[in-house]
Design a protein around this nucleic acid. Sequence first.
DNA 1: CTGAAAGCGCTTACAG
DNA 2: CTGAAAGCGCTTACAG
Lengths: 335, 335
Amino acid sequence: MKRSSIKDIAKLAGVSVATVSYVLNRKEGQRISEETRKKIFEIAETINYTPNKIAKSLKTNKTKLLGLIVADISNEFYSLMARNLEDKALKLGYTLIIGSSDENAEKFKKLTELFSQQQVDGMIVAPVAGSEKTLENLMHIKYPVVTIDRYLKGVTVPGITINNQEIAENTTSLLLNKNFDKIIYIGYETELPHLLDRQHGFEKAVHASKKTVEIRHILVGLENIAEEVHSQLENTLGKSPENTALYFSSNKLAVAGLSYLVKNNIKVPEQVSVIAFDETETYHLFPTEITYIQQPIEAMAEEAIKLLDGQINNYTATEKRVTLSAKLIAKASFK
Amino acid sequence: MKRSSIKDIAKLAGVSVATVSYVLNRKEGQRISEETRKKIFEIAETINYTPNKIAKSLKTNKTKLLGLIVADISNEFYSLMARNLEDKALKLGYTLIIGSSDENAEKFKKLTELFSQQQVDGMIVAPVAGSEKTLENLMHIKYPVVTIDRYLKGVTVPGITINNQEIAENTTSLLLNKNFDKIIYIGYETELPHLLDRQHGFEKAVHASKKTVEIRHILVGLENIAEEVHSQLENTLGKSPENTALYFSSNKLAVAGLSYLVKNNIKVPEQVSVIAFDETETYHLFPTEITYIQQPIEAMAEEAIKLLDGQINNYTATEKRVTLSAKLIAKASFK
DNA sequence: CTGAAAGCGCTTACAG
DNA sequence: CTGAAAGCGCTTACAG
């Protein structure tokens, strides 16, 4: 696979490589005779020339490559985010290189190093617990970085989040205004601030409320979600609950919980009301339409790319954080 | 963001850049005094040196970048495939750059051009209808390419497929051996050979059978799957079917069909039996466990990377096609 | 209107 | 054991 270069064109056209470069890049300032232009384009066409962006990158110090680090690209939320980022990036001429951190700080660090060696112009990352140092180092060398979905305490990286605590608080208040006997919060055992925000929002609403309602928490690890949720729901909710509400703080948790409800033939919303953070196509197979909190993924992607591109080209300050609003989509699972 | 280079290290260490390069790359042949080695490593460490792979690439003609083109990275099948490819690629030191073609031949072509300009060492592609020419061109310039999931008629690109026709035929035979009154095949209106293979497998089994059973086809476009499947199932299956089998040729179709069953309270397998091609987490919210055909995604990813790496390094012939076997996972949806 | 030349950050055959 | 030098394929200020 021998590719033709600018040099080949120059030789064939009997001009210098500089001229070829000028023509191919359609620079305005330099005026080159229509004749040579035409000849150069024709030759480029016939020898099937494709520019070597690597060579260009070396000179211009821009690769037009963006690194994306998510926890796991096969996770629905992240693959949808990746898709949106891809589209927005492409519009500005960037392509995405992707890595999954598996919630592992060491792997996260390795990926940032790898991407930095590949000279990506910037990175969009969903940082994992324990990766504060890695982010700080990137900030320190002024590497353009934007966080999405998550953020880390004590590190001021520009990024996009949603109003996790607020929306959790508001939806929990809605729940409290109904007269449930019991409300169960199903969340993660985690240190990730954005997930804790959801929990704190829930708790804040509970404390502010005058209702006497039994509150229970189910917290599970990031693995074996289904099994853990099932067994804990069995303890906390039982097989024939009445007048209870379930608050799932992620779509994965919700799916696990809903499958418990299906298996035990528990009726929604007759016996149990359900609200979930995040959506998923999976809800469509549940007999009742699920009330969920919708993240503005497209807007998040758009803002992330904009913020990153701004940093890369020095438009934007590097401590800008953008908070977007999630939205409650009310459906029948809630009574 | 000024990065330090090999030159900086050389200057600081008082040696040549050649020496630094040798040390950092731990070349065996060249023996360099332990003293200078140590000094160079220390300096590299203190000035926080990271190699510029772009520069290396220009010289070595290897970027360690692989292009992945799928129809849509937010599609569950492809994001899972991407994840597996990512892992396998990383083991060989490659990173993945990703693009979604949206089943659009023009966009597919654009992505191959973009990736080729980025000098990816090879591409893993799920070709779209009408992209024969694009693939041929890549083959012609001997660009390392491997197809996954799909293939195209008349183009001999190395690639990985599964035994679509055979597994479809076998599972259909199973269906025919039961005494259903009616069997409905739900598939796509498409020219994509791998999907037609599934349909042909179904039809082959039907023709070979001596049973008299009513056979119906539902073929839908790639968009508005849910609506189309719903309305056509309403016509073909009705609201209270008996002794009927549904054969879905993809997980998306299956989800659309299952949601119809849920909505109309049709019991599986009492009234209707179900078999689906491909799995999805979504099945878990259906009251009955779904019988499905499982693609060996991990093995496909592994073979794809192996095949591509082989081409890149000239181990493998460039017309090798690998066919892996899908497996029927029998569950309760089938009686 | 066009070209010679330097340089981006590396690698590597060659010489000593 | 180490270095000078060429070169990968581009871009771009400068000169003419």
